[in-house]
Computed example of a mutant assay.
Amino acid sequence: MIMRKWLATASLWTGCMLAGCDGPQNYMQAGGPAAAKLASIGAFTLILFSLVSIVVLLLLLWVAVRRRGTLESHAPIDADGGQRWILVGGIAVPVAVLATVFVSSLQAMSHYPMSHQDGAAADIRVTGRQWWFNAEYLGHTVHGRVNSPTEIHIPVGRPVDIELVTRDVIHSFWIPKLHGKVDLVPGMTNRIRIRADEPGVFSGECGEFCGAQHANMRLQVVAQSAEEFDRWLRDQRANAREPQTSSQKIGQQVFMSAACALCHTVRGTPALGQVGPDLTHVASRGHIAGGMLPNNRGTLTAWVSHAQELKPGSRMPDLPGLTGEQLIALSDYLQSLE
């Protein structure tokens, strides 16, 4: 009976540990060269410390099995022998293990630096706010400014230099499958270089506690072929689409007359607010609410009307005064902004 309980407990713990080996932010499944190097260090460190833990557990088991008599019946511990065990097992071995890990980490950081070293201008400026990230594509403003809240698009196989700043508190830019964490510190500009080796969507989040909604400050990096990226960038430069249906036209009027236009920008319209995310092409994004919610009609309507219930403390206010018809029209308009 006791053995059966032990087996059940061991199976439960094993299942929990294996469940943590997969996921959208598993850094061991690297999508770029920097993350691959960090993953190799992580695997080496995990194996090394697992071996050390096994040795320690075996020594404890050996002591428990060989225990005889009582403490009073044993002879005093030999001072020289005891000190030798302490010096070797308690100081020399830990120092050697930690020094090995430290040197390996330094080598990885020097080979794949967090920031570019050639003095070239950054490709993207990522700004952290409570609680969302905004990506501004630098050098692409001739035909219109490109802002992409919560979603960063990059070309596959090409290093992308990102400038990191914050508008309020300390945040941390972290895409586990592409690179390590880099903090966004008030008054400072940090850099990071990322590269994706294959197309895909790489999930990330803020890695530094930044307030009540820190856990809901997320972002995605979309790696595309060069042709798809250029097409996306060209589409993002364009102004917002004009409303086509009567419902979309009513929705635009609701957007302009309500508080929306005071906080958000929709290029090509009088809405030039800078408080919230740019909504010029909001329908083309996979998520809203700082990456918290999937972008569809239901979540968009809920976010507009009850943002404080979904994400308390965010800068997005509730708009309870809108009627059902106005909400439907407003969501029609926003869903047309591709």
Rank of each mutant, 00 (worst) to 15 (best):
P312E: 11
P317T: 07
D318A: 08
G290V: 13
R315H: 13
A289M: 08
H287T: 14
M316H: 08
M316Y: 07
V304K: 00
T299N: 15
R315E: 15
A307I: 05
R297Y: 00
L293P: 05
L310S: 06
S314T: 15
Q308N: 09
G291H: 08
A302W: 01
N295R: 13
P312A: 09
V304D: 01
I288R: 06
L319D: 02
H287V: 08
L300C: 02
P312Y: 13
P294I: 13
R285F: 03
A307P: 04
H287A: 06
G313M: 10
L300M: 15
G290M: 12
M292T: 12
A307T: 05
G313N: 12
S305A: 11
L310W: 04
M316I: 14
P294V: 15
T299H: 14
G286N: 03
H306L: 03
D318Y: 09
A302P: 00
L293Y: 10
G286E: 05
S305D: 02
I288W: 04
P317S: 12
R297S: 08
A289H: 05
M316G: 10
G286K: 02
S314I: 09
A302D: 12
H287L: 03
S314F: 06
G298A: 14
I288F: 05
E309D: 14
G291D: 08
G290A: 13
S305R: 14
T301I: 02
S314D: 15
W303N: 05
N295A: 11
H287E: 09
Q308W: 10
A307G: 06
G286L: 02
L300T: 07
T299G: 00
L319H: 11
R297C: 00
R285G: 01
L310H: 07
N296A: 01
P317A: 10
G290E: 11
H287I: 01
G291A: 06
L310A: 11
T301W: 00
R285V: 00
D318T: 09
T299F: 06
K311T: 08
N296L: 01
P317V: 07
R315L: 15
S314E: 12
